[in-house]
């Protein structure tokens, strides 16, 4: 994990990648938008059922990592594999079919569609909307069932975030990508949101989360990555990163 100078903080937690059962493995990823390169040799992996957080300052390229997995950036080099298969540069539809769902940071619901229609759109690649998937999402987020015929644009920010997650869960993905789900939420809702992510992860879905709220994300996750200027800076267990002096001073506000 240190071929490009990434420093591992913890002692003994970071096994070599080959020994971990990598569901998603990113190696030496270079990506950006058009001619502008943002990511420079990023390494990152997520195991089956693992909860991984990516933190770092603004403009570090955290969201770009998620977008690259989804084929939304200009792919410049490196490898992205999922379940052993190369998925680098595949269009979003193909990535979804392989079991990855993505919740963008903002504007992540269709405002003029009803709550239920938003959820149905999550299963567009299937021939019909599976009733049990809908029931599972309604069980997880009862408020969505209550509001199912309401236009999504009329929901509160927190409810929209639940709807966006619900839509992403409709296909029961193996890996859920979350881009700053706590952004723009009222403080008391942030905790609830993190609890939801914990529940989703406990139910067996691997989670790759990008967060501004670094402390909380590291407290909750199994492992964390610190990204700076498009490059790996630290990688370790969440607890270990939280305890590290340098990480605390530079990225967690002391």
């Amino acid at each position: 994990m240190s071929a490009d100078g990434t420093r591992s903080v913890g002692r003994g937690r970071s096994e070599p990648r080959s020994e971990r059962d990598g569901l998603l493995v990113i190696e030496g990823l270079d990506a950006g938008y058009g001619d502008l390169q943002i990511l420079d040799g990023v390494d990152l992996d997520v195991g089956d059922g693992e909860y991984v957080a990516v933190i770092g300052p603004n403009g570090a390229g955290k969201s770009t990592v998620l977008k690259s997995i989804f084929g939304l950036t200009t792919y410049m080099g490196g490898r992205i594999t999922f379940g052993g298969e190369d998925i680098g540069g595949l269009p979003p539809e193909a990535v979804i079919r392989r079991g990855i769902s993505y919740v963008p940071q903002t504007e992540n619901v269709f405002p003029s569609l009803s709550v239920r229609e938003n959820l149905e759109m999550g299963t567009y690649i299937l021939d019909s909307v599976p009733e049990d998937a809908l029931r599972a999402v309604f069980d997880r987020f009862p408020i969505l069932q209550e509001r199912q015929s309401q236009r999504a644009g009329t929901l509160s920010g927190g409810q929209q975030q639940m709807l966006a997650m619900g839509r992403a869960l409709m296909l029961d993905p193996k890996l859920l990508l979350l881009d700053e789900p706590s952004a723009g939420l009222a403080p008391d809702l942030v905790d609830e949101m993190f609890d939801r992510v914990d529940e989703i992860n406990r139910a067996g879905t691997a989670v790759l989360i990008v967060e501004q709220n670094a402390k909380e994300a590291l407290r909750r996750c199994d492992r964390g990555y610190v990204l700076v200027q498009g490059q790996n800076r630290f990688a370790d267990a969440g607890e270990a990163l939280l305890a590290d002096d340098e990480v605390r001073r530079e990225f967690l506000g002391g």
């Binding site: 539809e93 979804i96 963008p104 504007e107 269709f110 229609e117 759109m121 999550g122 296909l171």
Partner: peptide
């Protein structure tokens, strides 16, 4: 029809939702 409305709302989100 719903996908058409979804695309009118937000084409980028439609793409990452898996709508062709």
């Amino acid at each position: 029809g719903k996908a058409m409305r979804a695309m009118a709302d937000n084409p980028d989100l439609a793409r990452v939702t898996g709508i062709p």
